[in-house]
């Protein structure tokens, strides 16, 4: 196996150690006083190499965080996936309006007549409905508010 393997042109090139770390530690950081040492032993490298590699992955933007992935819905607050049907020529203008709300988390353009999809995160459901109504009024676009009813368990399968 080569030391470096390009994935796609627009994505980053990963070293062998970077790839092994990604594939082995998407969960289960050791809850041991010296977790990087335990990881290093497992991968046959030094603790310093593990820490340096993580730092590099963070700098490259491949890694958002080496730590908890929180289930925000277990915390206080209300969440919903919302969509707007935005006329193509107004898309950027409406995106600015929507992204201006602090309650908007992710926002994706999708290729569909419902072309703007974002997550609203608020203190409670009443606020969520208010913000959703407000967004529809301000943008003048039809909207869908689709709070999750059931989440089905999906294991973690990303391969680097």
């Amino acid at each position: 196996m080569s030391e470096h393997r390009p994935l796609r042109q627009e994505s980053v090139v990963l070293s062998d150690l970077e790839r092994r770390l990604i594939n082995a530690y998407q969960g289960d950081i050791p809850l041991d006083p010296e977790p990087f040492m335990r990881i290093a032993e497992n991968l046959g490298v030094t603790s310093e190499e593990v820490q340096q590699t993580l730092r590099r992955l963070l700098d490259k933007g491949v890694l958002t965080r080496f730590g908890p992935l929180y289930n925000i819905e277990k915390a206080d607050g209300s969440f919903s996936l919302c969509a707007l049907k935005v006329p193509e020529h107004r898309f950027d203008e409406v995106a600015d309006q929507v992204n201006g709300y602090a309650q908007v988390a992710h926002n994706y353009q999708r290729e569909h007549e419902w072309n703007m999809w974002f997550v609203l995160a608020t203190e409670d459901y009443q606020e969520l409905e208010q913000v959703f109504e407000d967004i529809k009024t301000v943008t003048g676009c039809p909207g869908l508010n689709l709070p999750k009813q059931t989440e089905f368990f999906v294991g973690l399968k990303l391969q680097a």
Binding site: Y25, G27, V62, L63, T64, R65, P68, L69, K74, L156
Partner: peptide
């Protein structure tokens, strides 16, 4: 379940 998993949070 507050922490879904404790590890690499990737893009």
């Amino acid at each position: 379940g507050l922490i879904k998993r404790f590890g690499m949070v990737l893009r």
